[in-house]
Amino acid sequence: MKKIILTSLLTSLLLSASDLQSIGVEVTYTDSNDDEKNIVIKRETPDNCKSVKFSPKNILGGNLVDEKVPQNCKKTFITYLGKISPIKFSPNIETYGEVEVLDFIDKAKDDENMLLVDSRTVDWFLESTIPSAINIPFIYLNKGQYPDDFLDALETIGVEVTKDGYDFANAKELLLFCNGVWCGQSPLSMKNLISIGYPEEKLKWYRGGIQSWLSLGLPVIKPN
């Protein structure tokens, strides 16, 4: 009986994940003209990409994909950059993949205590980011370097500064990301937060970041 219940639960979870990928998650954002817009976050597949044969030659050609694959079916990335991060930043911090990010975004629409945080500097954020993300640059979490921005960041994530230090009673659940598995900005954000006592169980990490997000055909936006 227990096995049947567990199997049923697993099937339900798999169907839920599949629905998120195929139906998407709708979010609202403000663009650079201060206009409110909606976007559905789901994989974008150009029509001419749907006919690409899933084969070793096409998918893993000499230049990663065969030269005959249509240009708009490909993504170009710099591969030799930064330092590769381990899969786990800390035993107490969950590492997320894209389906978990979608689930987090979906839940955060009804929960103001959940924040998707782009840890990159402002210029990177303004170029493009994941829909619904807010920008808290990793440098702003260094209290010695940017004290005013540090205090603003703490207020945003629900941390109160007291005479004895910090009060984390209302600290928000954060999902942090940056450029990719080679990017050190979100790890630095987590390191700085942990150094002041931020509860690790309230931190989540999207290790793949923007590069993995784009590689799977998921959309980005240019925020205001």
Score class of each variant (00 low, 15 high):
residue 169 A to K: 13
residue 183 C to L: 01
residue 95 T to F: 12
residue 34 D to W: 09
residue 86 P to I: 11
residue 165 G to L: 15
residue 168 F to C: 11
residue 211 Q to V: 09
residue 105 I to L: 11
residue 159 V to R: 00
residue 143 K to I: 02
residue 23 I to L: 04
residue 6 L to I: 12
residue 18 S to D: 02
residue 44 E to S: 12
residue 107 K to Y: 10
residue 214 L to T: 14
residue 83 K to I: 13
residue 153 A to L: 01
residue 196 I to D: 00
residue 92 N to C: 09
residue 67 E to T: 15
residue 217 G to L: 08
residue 117 V to S: 00
residue 12 S to A: 08
residue 75 K to W: 11
residue 44 E to V: 12
residue 135 N to T: 10
residue 168 F to D: 05
residue 170 N to P: 07
residue 55 S to M: 13
residue 72 N to F: 02
residue 203 L to N: 04
residue 113 N to W: 00
residue 167 D to K: 00
residue 53 K to N: 15
residue 141 L to P: 00
residue 100 E to G: 14
residue 5 I to N: 07
residue 17 A to E: 13
residue 156 T to A: 04
residue 110 D to I: 03
residue 202 K to M: 13
residue 35 D to C: 13
residue 139 I to Y: 02
residue 187 P to D: 08
residue 163 K to A: 03
residue 138 F to M: 05
residue 62 G to T: 06
residue 12 S to R: 02
residue 154 L to W: 04
residue 140 Y to S: 00
residue 43 R to Y: 08
residue 198 Y to P: 01
residue 69 V to C: 15
residue 41 I to C: 06
residue 175 L to I: 00
residue 197 G to M: 08
residue 59 I to M: 11
residue 87 I to F: 11
residue 24 G to N: 03
residue 132 S to V: 03
residue 170 N to F: 01
residue 127 E to C: 09
residue 106 D to E: 10
residue 153 A to S: 01
residue 140 Y to E: 04
residue 13 L to Q: 03
residue 10 L to I: 07
residue 200 E to L: 15
residue 7 T to H: 03
residue 49 C to M: 07
residue 36 E to N: 10
residue 2 K to V: 13
residue 77 F to W: 05
residue 185 Q to E: 12
residue 44 E to H: 10
residue 199 P to V: 12
residue 134 I to T: 06
residue 26 E to V: 06
